[in-house]
Computed example of a mutant assay.
Amino acid sequence: MDTPPPPDLWPSIDPLGEALHALRMSGVFCCRSEATAPWGVAMPPMAGCAMFHVVTEGQCWIETPDAPARCLRPGDFVLVPHGHGHRLVSEPGGNADELFALPREFTSGRYEVLRFDGGGAACGLVCGAVKFEDPAARRLIALLPPTLWIEAGEAPWMQATLQHLAAEARQMRPGGEAVVTRLADILIIQAIRAWMAQDTTARTGWLGALQDRAIGAALAAIHRDPARDWTLVSLAATAAMSRSAFAARFTQLVGVPAMQYLAQWRMQVAHTRLAEHGGAIPEVAEGVGYQSEAAFSRAFKRHLGVAPGEVVRRARAAAQ
């Protein structure tokens, strides 16, 4: 018989909030730029990364593949969530040097300062490239448009955070890198919330399902405990619905049946744990609900097209 879920898996009050909570970033790099015109920097494509820019002083232009050049002023925030290459320049169409070809002053392992001295108008920027490890966070980021813009006047509630970020970047007191990273966390979450409030596409599909009280509760339970021996009956109980009504509504909102989603989710979690955390295959298998390593390996290859051992080998080779 199916047993009811434990209290920590009862219907979530805010399943979407849990997905946003998963947006804990691991920094690839963060930099403060002090520039006087003319200047320009070409940000290279960074697969699997989201890049953000905050103007702290003066103005500059951002050129992205999906939109015309756009002016950024103090208090503006832009997120390039899919790691597409783009340019930051003092004037549209100006020359831009490749980011990693520029001399940089490293203040710590992942924080650096760029300086451009063209002698003209001054501009200050805080920029960063970040990764998201949690599968729920990655899925949410994948749904975002190519560029997210938040102008200073659009979201007054962001300005205090932006001002704090700018102050920390200028002063870089002890612990400043950690503060800048945490503030960037907040800014990205706020930018996504602003997009969700304005864009109707954010209320459909997987995001829409997270915002449904019943189906969102089931999704949150799967995300929290993929190893649990879930069945259609126990997931329906978590959603406080009958089995038939739950099955139909889950498929309608999410786009796939509940048990298929569970299987896919387990494989996404397993891939993350193998590729980025160096987990041992037996432990990873058990962590997503498989008692047999052989059964796990078959399911993994069926869903992802590659064996778990190959994922581990690639990860180790990349780390060398």
Rank of each mutant, 00 (worst) to 15 (best):
T3V: 07
P5A: 14
P5V: 12
P7T: 08
D8Y: 14
I13L: 15
L20R: 09
H21E: 15
C30F: 09
C31Q: 08
V41Q: 12
V41M: 14
P44C: 09
P45V: 07
M46D: 03
A47T: 15
C49F: 04
C49A: 15
A50G: 10
F52L: 13
H53T: 14
V55S: 02
E57C: 14
Q59G: 13
W61D: 00
R70I: 06
C71W: 03
L72A: 15
G75I: 06
F77Y: 15
F77S: 08
P81E: 12
H82C: 01
P92W: 03
P92V: 10
G94T: 04
A96Y: 05
E105S: 07
F116L: 03
D117H: 07
G118W: 05
G119A: 12
A121M: 13
V126Y: 10
C127K: 13
G128Y: 11
G128E: 07
D134F: 04
A136T: 09
I141Q: 10
I150Y: 04
E151G: 07
E151Q: 13
A155T: 12
Q159M: 14
T161V: 15
E168F: 03
M172F: 12
R173I: 06
R173A: 14
P174C: 11
G176V: 06
E177V: 15
A178R: 15
R182K: 11
L183M: 10
L183F: 07
I188P: 07
I189Y: 00
W195Q: 10
M196I: 13
A197G: 12
G205N: 06
A209V: 06
D212G: 06
R213G: 00
R213H: 12
A214S: 06
R224W: 04
D225G: 01
D225I: 00
D229G: 11
D229T: 15
W230C: 02
L232D: 14
L232A: 15
V233I: 13
L235V: 06
A236F: 06
S242K: 13
R243A: 13
A245P: 00
V254I: 10
V256Y: 00
A258I: 00
A258P: 01
Q264V: 03
V269C: 13
V269T: 12
V269H: 01
A270H: 08
R273Q: 12
L274Q: 10
P282R: 02
A285F: 01
E293R: 12
E293W: 05
A294L: 05
A294R: 09
F296G: 06
S297M: 03
S297H: 07
A299Y: 04
A307G: 12
P308G: 11
P308F: 03
E310Q: 14
R313G: 01
R313V: 10
A317Q: 11
Q320N: 11
